[in-house]
Nucleic acid binder design. Structure first.
Length: 232
DNA sequence: CCCGTAACGATTGACGTTGT
DNA sequence: ACAACGTCAATCGTTACGGG
């Protein structure tokens, strides 16, 4: 996923009211849209280096969008809207081994009336539902973690993926780790016990879990490397 | 019939209000 | 006093609808 225009570098001042961040660019303070509705635990330190994009659409109140934050000498992509795009490109470019040379990739496919999953992939006459989760948390420099706050939606999705298994689909959760240098991934069970419980149940039922790390660069973000999931 | 625009849902934590 | 609930924030993608 290439950014269409060069990103602008600045320093983070604060994030507030869910969608706002104040950023210092060469001693001018601007307000940028924060395209990540999560808690962004650990990412919001004052004076962190950030990269933002500019969009001159007259309908936008905020012309800037926060894209990347530098934390502990590591780059983190925070625009969750890009996650499915990055994964779509990864699937199309055969960067995800399991789904290499798939016959079709369909985004946003309804499983039932209430739930749609991010992708339905068909390969060798087998259908796979894939639910993508964007990951930006790392409390330890070696290990990315999900979730960064209690996620009842996440738990609901796991339960529905279990249903999909029972209806004869294969189902996958793909943790897209938008953190530049990281080796492992795990479920943060201390943050959301219920999610961890549902993860174990889903795994037992046959839901497959994958974690991939991105290359984060102010020019582009792409899928780079499969990570080891180290929950026991 | 087509294009442009308006409306709407999804995203999730913070905060204000209401109810017990 | 606190818990539960509803609303709000900006953007984007999709859908619905109007005028020409």
């Amino acid at each position: 996923m290439k950014f269409s225009k060069r990103l602008i570098k600045g320093k983070l001042i604060k994030r507030y009211k869910r969608f706002f961040t104040d950023i210092n660019i060469k001693n001018k303070i601007i307000t940028a849209h924060c395209p990540n509705t999560g808690s962004m635990m650990g990412l919001l330190g004052k004076n962190n280096d950030v990269w933002i994009s500019k969009n001159n659409d007259p309908k936008r109140k905020l012309k800037y969008t926060l894209e990347i934050i530098k934390v502990k000498n590591n780059l983190v992509g925070v625009n969750t809207l890009l996650a499915n795009k990055i994964v779509y490109e990864g699937l199309s470019n055969n960067l995800i081994n399991k789904f290499k040379n798939s016959d079709s990739i369909k985004p946003e496919v309804y499983f039932n009336k209430d739930t749609r999953f991010d992708f339905l992939v068909n390969k060798n006459n087998q259908n796979y539902f894939i639910e993508v989760k964007n990951v930006t948390l790392f409390r330890n420099i070696n290990t990315a973690e999900f979730p960064d706050a209690v996620t009842s939606r996440g738990s609901k999705h796991l339960k529905t993926l279990i249903d999909a298994i029972k209806k004869g689909y294969k189902s996958y959760v793909l943790f897209l780790v938008q953190i530049q240098n990281i080796d492992n991934f795990k479920i943060a069970k201390d943050i959301d016990k219920d999610y961890y419980k549902n993860y174990l149940l889903a795994k037992k039922t046959g839901v497959q879990f994958l974690a991939y790390r991105c290359k984060i660069d102010p020019a582009e973000i792409t899928i780079k490397k499969k990570l080891k999931i180290i929950n026991e």
